[in-house]
């Protein structure tokens, strides 16, 4: 959800995410108060910068992960549509979009394997008996295969990106650890001061007052209509 907000891209949210946001909105309308802790750091700029870098890397990593997953789901939906098109009447095996990425990739891979094999076998037969070959079918199957292949490449690209960003995140977090150990006043003592410098923890609450509730209701009504 954070990834979708940061990227302003609704497609990074799943249906379940949307459902949870709607539930949360209704809970807030019913008067739920959600306690939260806010962390802030004031003090040495090196530390502040290191923390900033780490947070940035972390959020980029989250976005990359969400992007990868949405690419996988795009391929899974494509596979499902093809299976439905092929057997419109029978009960078809469909990929469960909310399954884990590993499982979806595995199933998509076997779809591509199967498509390629069927097409290859047909083409070899058609070469021997060109007159009885259904060229429209061959073209259709080739289009499906090439489109799934393109989606597969997208997934691969997204996952390579996740790997690269993960490395950046590890580096940033190592840097942060290094700064912490360099600048730490004492390793094992928690120092409590006036709160001008150091890590600040604030307790806040998310809740809606009457006016805000009315705003949310108006917005929800637009969506629901």
């Amino acid at each position: 959800i954070f990834a979708a907000i940061e990227e302003e891209n609704d497609l990074l949210m799943t249906d379940e995410d949307v459902e949870e946001m709607i539930v949360l909105a209704f809970e807030l309308l019913c008067g739920r108060r959600i306690p939260m802790l806010v962390f802030a750091y004031r003090g040495r700029w090196e530390l502040a910068a290191a923390l900033d870098n780490m947070e940035k890397a972390r959020s980029e990593y989250r976005i990359a992960q969400a992007t990868g997953l949405s690419r996988i789901r795009a391929l899974a939906s494509f596979v499902n549509n093809q299976n439905l098109k092929q057997n419109p009447e029978q009960e078809t095996f469909l990929l469960q979009i909310n399954h884990s990425a590993d499982l979806l990739v595995e199933q998509a891979e076997s779809f591509l394997d199967q498509k390629a094999e069927t097409l290859m076998t047909y083409c070899l037969k058609a070469k021997k008996q060109p007159k009885s070959a259904d060229m429209r079918w061959v073209k259709e199957q080739a289009d499906v295969l090439s489109e799934s292949l393109a989606l597969w490449k997208e997934i691969r690209k997204a996952y390579e990106r996740i790997g690269r960003i993960h490395a950046v995140l590890i580096k940033a977090s190592e840097r942060w650890e290094k700064f912490i150990s360099t600048f730490a006043v004492s390793d094992d003592k928690l120092q409590i001061g006036k709160g001008l410098r150091g890590l600040k923890v604030l307790e806040k609450e998310i809740a809606l007052d009457a006016e805000q509730k009315s705003d949310v209701c108006q917005q929800l009504a637009v969506f629901l209509n």
Partner: peptide, 22 residues
């Protein structure tokens, strides 16, 4: 994250064979 292998040679082979036929 899942291991996403490189596109397989068989996938390309089938595509090339089909395109040749068309």
């Amino acid at each position: 994250p899942p291991v996403v292998v490189a596109p397989k040679r068989d996938w390309y082979k089938a595509l090339i064979e089909a395109r040749r036929l068309i």
